[in-house]
Amino acid sequence: MAKLSVGVLRGGPSSEYDTSLRSGAHVLRSLTTDWYQVRDIFIDRDGVWHMRGVPTTPERALHGVDVALNALCGEYGEDGTVQRILEKLSVPYTGSDAFASALAMHKVRAKECAVEAGLRTPQCIVFRVSEDYEKRLLDLFRSFPMPVVVKPVARGSSIGTSVAYGYTDLAESIARAFTHSNQVLIEEYIRGPEATVGVIDGFRGEEYYQTLPVEIVRPQGEMIITPELKGCGLAIGHCPSTFSHGIKQELQDAALCIHRALGARHYSRSDFIVSPRGVYFLETNTLPSLSQEAPLVQALTAAGSSLPELLEHVIVLARRGK
């Protein structure tokens, strides 16, 4: 029997370039060559595609590929851009389609979907550059209780995210966020531990399989999980978590709810805050990291599964056009 040709996309012109390289490397190691002819397709920071170290076009890189396994993270790979390239070339691919990817990446639109689906989300204001920037900034500071979380609207993995405690902090945080996006989201700070839950379509005999929640433990004194903490291994995920059975169920229900509301497919991972006031939705990753230390991989391992099992499953889904 001929082996299935699987092209693994990694890298990309994204602020999560390094995360994508780690994710893609783990995927490449996890695909058994007994079943698959694996093709390493590297995309550099400028968006140039490469095969065997040589620059090429997407058409040539994907020629003869049966399925593209999308291991990209962040913009380009997770915002619908690469999905549109793959759709134009009629190459089946893993992960959500272009529309759902773009919807989930846009934090404001994703929050609107969450609210319509009945989920709690932090109160927020969207800030845009305008002629009366200074006045709007002062009005925001006077009307919105501190501290607040400041985020670029169109970035993932906490890129450009910071906590502001006062006016100077707020101005600096918004300026930093504007370097990543032309819109900035200012959210109320919700106190409580962070949790993340995966949803996988049609996995292990279930229409929607919800992973065990992973509890993300921040170092003492840290208010949010930043890319720097993740990169240094200081944001530690625990699975099984210490949450009560009721909270675990609420987290899993919320993850499934937003997965369906966004129209995500194959798999996703959603992030939450567990507050005394309840579970608050933060964001959904339609292409969560699949690196060895990634929360989704942790959750699979805790349930007796593995990344190879997940990869085999989503490749089948992509081939079937589901």
Rank of each mutant, 00 (worst) to 15 (best):
Y165G: 04
Y165D: 07
Y165W: 09
Y165I: 00
Y165S: 11
G166L: 00
Y167G: 03
Y167A: 08
Y167V: 01
T168Q: 14
D169P: 01
D169N: 10
L170W: 01
I174R: 10
I174F: 12
I174K: 09
I174Q: 12
A175H: 09
A175K: 11
R176W: 03
R176S: 15
R176C: 13
F178K: 00
T179V: 04
T179G: 08
H180W: 11
H180G: 06
S181E: 07
N182Q: 12
N182S: 14
Q183D: 13
Q183E: 15
Q183T: 11
V184N: 10
V184G: 07
V184R: 07
V184C: 11
L185G: 05
L185D: 08
E187S: 09
E188H: 13
Y189R: 14
I190S: 09
I190D: 10
R191G: 14
G192I: 06
P193V: 02
P193A: 13
E194C: 12
E194R: 07
E194L: 14
A195R: 03
T196S: 15
V197S: 06
G198T: 03
G198R: 03
V199A: 15
I200A: 08
D201E: 15
D201M: 13
D201Y: 03
G202I: 03
R204E: 15
R204L: 14
R204G: 04
G205L: 13
G205I: 10
G205R: 09
E206L: 10
E207K: 13
E207R: 13
Q210G: 09
T211S: 15
T211P: 01
L212D: 11
P213C: 11
P213R: 07
P213K: 07
V214K: 03
E215T: 05
E215W: 06
E215M: 11
I216N: 02
V217S: 08
V217F: 02
V217W: 02
V217H: 10
R218G: 03
R218F: 05
R218C: 10
P219C: 12
Q220P: 01
Q220A: 14
Q220H: 08
Q220N: 04
E222Y: 06
E222L: 03
E222I: 02
E222C: 05
E222N: 04
M223S: 15
M223W: 12
I224L: 13
I224G: 05
I224A: 08
I224F: 07
I224Y: 05
I225S: 15
T226N: 10
P227R: 02
P227H: 05
P227L: 06
P227Y: 04
P227T: 01
E228V: 00
E228F: 01
L229N: 05
L229T: 01
L229P: 00
